[in-house]
Design a protein around this nucleic acid. Structure first.
Lengths: 190, 190
DNA sequence: GCTGCTTGCCTAAGCATCGTAGGCAAATGC
DNA sequence: GCATTTGCCTACGATGCTTAGGCAAGCAGC
């Protein structure tokens, strides 16, 4: 019988595509094996188990997203950097919903520490270099930005803003504008 | 053999507790049956299937959360209402992580339309009555608030802010303060 | 082109879950 | 006490995850 040419790499890449098509939750060894026209058991020389597959897709997604954000933010500052970061993040999520869901997959601590997740945190903080925010306000602002981005895109991909005016793009633009204003006038006393 | 006294109501309530203990994803008919000391098949006269169980837990969580938020917001306005809403929301999520995850469960459109989810939207909008925001800015602000709340709490429950200073409570307080400032000075031109 | 080794995908099997169908016994009404 | 209803059961089929071991495809050397 002809061999399918399975490798961990190919399986993970195909798994990411599968996630975008049918959802991250539904991306399982059985489904992946069907896609390659092989038996499920054949995957287990390349993947430890179902959890390992999901973890590797999550790491791929984090990496891709960090690369794209990094490229978009390079050479920009202030509001320019803010919107570049935000738009790349959102576009990635809308274009790759399965990978985006994968990026939220709960990794165990040491895997997370070695993942591209840390680059996301660094880049978020880098954006704030264009604004005049001292610690601890800077950390609070980093957390706000992370919350807005992941929250907005999470709600949008979950269908939260469909079937209601104004459309999601318009809100997104205005929210970024509002965040820029807020960062330039961050209240340091309550 | 003595009967266990299963009802849909009891199963869903137990399912919600189970979700808080072991996670929403792990809350399945098999696990629930074990908890009641009955066979899995016995659940199927009270629940259509596994998806039905999850849907009903999600509806319960949305209802509980809407009730608590509603009680907290009543009689308050402006920043007072904002922080009351936000704190109840966050406290619920931290106290009931499984239910909170359930509240994010993707419902089919007509179920969602009949759920307490619409009360959440109404209450978020009610908060903005204390701020002077005309449409379409009001809708954009509603979406921002929803994004921040769900985003922040989502990241926090996922462990995003643990093991790093300052602690999550401090950021939360400052972020609510910043949001209040932003809502009082919402930029209406870019 | 043959021989033998490596490696990749296979079959077989165990175990768990979801969900359906039909049976028996406990609760309820008279 | 008897009949009916109802609730939980056993039995089963389908599907998925995962391990163990087998066989043949592909490559190395001659």
């Amino acid at each position: 019988m002809a061999r399918a040419g399975l490798t961990t790499e190919r399986l993970v890449r195909a798994g990411a595509e599968l996630a975008d098509e049918i959802g991250f939750e539904q991306t399982t060894p059985a489904e992946l094996a069907r896609r390659f026209g092989v038996k499920t058991a054949s995957l287990y020389s390349h993947l430890k188990n179902a959890h390992d597959l999901k973890t590797k897709i999550a790491l791929l997604a984090l990496e891709e997203l960090a690369d794209q954000v990094s490229a978009a933010v390079a050479g920009r500052a202030g509001k320019d950097a803010l919107t570049a970061f935000a738009n790349v993040y959102r576009d990635y999520a809308l274009k790759h919903p399965g990978r985006f869901a994968a990026a939220k997959f709960r990794l165990d601590p040491e895997t997370a520490a070695a993942s591209a997740g840390v680059r996301h945190a660094q880049m978020t903080r880098a954006i704030l270099r264009g604004y005049d925010l001292a610690e601890p306000h800077q950390t609070h602002a980093v957390r706000l930005l992370g919350s807005v981005f992941s929250g907005y895109v999470g709600l949008e991909t979950a269908g939260g803003f469909s079937h209601s005016a104004p459309d999601a793009q318009e809100s997104w633009t205005e929210i970024l504008n509002a965040l820029d204003t807020l960062l330039r006038n961050w209240p340091t006393t309550s």
